[in-house]
Design a protein around this nucleic acid. Sequence first.
DNA 1: CCTGCTGATGTGAACGTACACATCACCGGA
DNA 2: TCCGGTGATGTGTACGTTCACATCAGCAGG
Lengths: 343, 343
Amino acid sequence: MSSPEQASEPERVRAPNIRDVARVAGVSYQTVSRALNDSPSIRPETLARVQTAIEELGYRPNQAARALVTSRSRTIGVLAAQTVHYGPATSIQAIETAAREAGYRLSITNISSSEYASIKAGLDHLMAQSIEALIVIAPQVRVFEALNDLQVAVPFVTLESTGLNSAHSLWVDQIQGARLATRHLIDLGHTEIMHISGPQDWIEAEARMQGFLRELGDADLRTRAPILGDWTAHFGYYAGLELLRYRDFTAVFCGNDQMALGFMHACRESGLSVPGDMSIVGFDDIPEAAHFAPPLTTVRQNFAEIGRRAIEVLLGELRGDTELSHAPVQPELIVRQSTARLA
Amino acid sequence: MSSPEQASEPERVRAPNIRDVARVAGVSYQTVSRALNDSPSIRPETLARVQTAIEELGYRPNQAARALVTSRSRTIGVLAAQTVHYGPATSIQAIETAAREAGYRLSITNISSSEYASIKAGLDHLMAQSIEALIVIAPQVRVFEALNDLQVAVPFVTLESTGLNSAHSLWVDQIQGARLATRHLIDLGHTEIMHISGPQDWIEAEARMQGFLRELGDADLRTRAPILGDWTAHFGYYAGLELLRYRDFTAVFCGNDQMALGFMHACRESGLSVPGDMSIVGFDDIPEAAHFAPPLTTVRQNFAEIGRRAIEVLLGELRGDTELSHAPVQPELIVRQSTARLA
DNA sequence: CCTGCTGATGTGAACGTACACATCACCGGA
DNA sequence: TCCGGTGATGTGTACGTTCACATCAGCAGG
């Protein structure tokens, strides 16, 4: 029908490969490979010729082929339970950036529930991609079992836990953060302090609760059973409405800023002034917290730092550097206007 | 030193491959391949034998090899500017879930700035992974140029834009949402209405502004130049402090809920009651909005729905189904307590 | 009993790259 | 002059999978 030269559509345009580049540059394919992996033994002018050819053809290395032959996927897996919340989302963004700069890509899998089956399915999905390392941002109680069951052999770290399994954890010192928050309330003269915690299976919720209880214990104050919440503002609100029917406390330490927001809402509806009648401390310092009514006293965590460190530690392990610093990141108390001295 | 049987570490444990499975199952490797790709022509009992062998060896198909030979990466790329905000994060989570259920994985790349170079670098990083389809959640003005320059040939959709390029867009009808918000204020008797918009290069910010201006125009009301913000509560706060020095308006339509939160903060500091002295409408309906002081009237978008539809449309295109519905998702006005009839 | 067909299974490529090794030109020193 | 060494480049092979095709048994129809 038409001559090969002007064939318009018939033959599927194959992406150029290393041999096409070699032909154009007038070298062997191996030389092109060397140019791509910046081998020391290649003459500058040869390198230049190859680069010109690459440019001309719009050549891109085929990562699948590369992964196949090197058996390195250059992929880091992330198992996450909550990618919508500010904290995890911020960490993941930092992780992605750091990974990309190091030549790795990220594969994120969300688990919908903290059921063992769900965790296992997520992990399975990641392992099927032959990830080189794993980062877990999820309720970790059951994750360790799953890691075992699936015989996960890659380096991994869990974020935002508590050093429970310190060889594989990287964390903001949540216990310390909770102590800072609680101490702040005690210093203001409060003696009846309530705690609204995160879900029981989140280790970080557990850690914040521990810090709260220890600080109260150290001050010989009455401890009361913390309320187990779900991180949402809705929960904070409804828990607040319930709790405020008995006003037998003057301060609340909330497991995160969202629950604190909801609790403040409940205070308003119950006719309580914050901080006049009720002091409230949150945790996380989401960007909105400074604009709550009133601006929220809270504990700031550096989520991005945690993310960057996760990549740093994992890439280190992949290179064989063992014994990288797992020292916890220190949280910081940010005092705003939701807390006041007890009248 | 030691007999091969009890050799403990020396030889690197190679992951089992399709041939290992074949040997254990007593079939040829091709039969195993058929079992994996549920071919119709395989006897049930043979299939069972293969599955048993797979189980026994803990075999996982090597995705790199598969991708190499089929030249299908089973990867969908996401180019995102903001993965920390509630809207994009929610969409991405829905995208990930839908993609995973369809057997695809996601590769997310964050762009740090809306510079052309940054967009191009991000796109380049994705294309290098031979993604099969692309989803863009970013300021889109320059994205189209970059898509052109890089000769991106895969199906793609941009999220949350405005039908500007409707063949490739999937969007909540932002113009309609903005009109709903503005109409609500007009219906309450407001005639002097201000708008704090998102950044100029975000098409969705532009669309909300358009909706605002059109609705005002239709009502023959005075239009004033919108303030160009950056989506943050901080901006809303400082813009509010500035604007409230001249109280020549009685209502504000904010480009998103965060800026509305900041603006409410500025109102409090300026001694204005919301909604008594100032009515405020936001956009997005983040989960916290219901607990602001006062609870925020806003426009709800179904971010998850958008995400799911993105995958649906792209997978459809990959299968060859053209003409899938790109009909915009309708937003919904949620009236709470931050708006009131003009006294 | 042979032919042709169908369903089930096996064999030989090929995908695009990196590693191990081979080759080649060139150089300095005995 | 020859030798070994070195730096630059080329050739064969393997990675694990799927596709195209070949083979083989079983069965129905003439």
